[in-house]
Amino acid sequence: MKYNFDWSIVLTGEYHQWLIDGLWLTLKISALSIILATALGTLVAVLRMTKVKALEWFSLAFTEFFRNTPLLVQIYFWYFGSYVLLPEAVNKWLYKQDFEFAAGVIALTVYTAAFIAEEIRAGIFAIPKNQLEASRATGLSFLQAYRYVILPQAFRIIIPPLISQFLNLIKNSSLVMTIGVMDLTYMARQIESHTFRGFEAFTAATLIYLVISLIVSLSINLYNKHFLRQIKY
């Protein structure tokens, strides 16, 4: 077999546009999932600290279950298996929308939230206990103490691991192609099957992922250098 490289197909024309569309979708689904996963992850982490047994158990079960099952299976579950969870009418309405995208966002959000919750918990544990006691003593309520004293400090410690979770999410988003979401990986696959030019398509897609990762890693390093040193315990 002889392989003639033809880089023009990924640099110009219709297939180039496919890659751009794919990149755009990858960024869109990642950004949305990052926002939702951070919110859900924080909530789950805080539930674990509430001292209410039922909530603590829920939080524990949530993190343990979703961290210890493969994302791919979770994607299949949300897309194909979730129909029993909701009433027929709601499903009907949902499926008329862009359900592929929605199922992808739900799966990425829930999976990453479980990891984020653990990172946040670790961050909160890193704050000395007497801080909470001290802020309670100044008259703040439990929630206020968390809101104004504990969480702002914890977030500074956990930002680097948090960003690396975001990076994982971006890379993990490549799995949504299995349910027909037209992300970057899906488009690379499509170009491969339309033109048999897998080499060029996969190289282009891989480079795009690498550039995204590099930007994110560099920003973590910068953050570490400039901000983390100021924190002392």
């Binding site: 890379k171 993990n172 990986t185 690379a188 891989t206 992922y209 990762s213 890693s217």
Partner: peptide
């Protein structure tokens, strides 16, 4: 490797 999705 760390910058590339496993699927890729």
């Amino acid at each position: 490797v760390r910058g590339t999705p496993l699927l890729m």
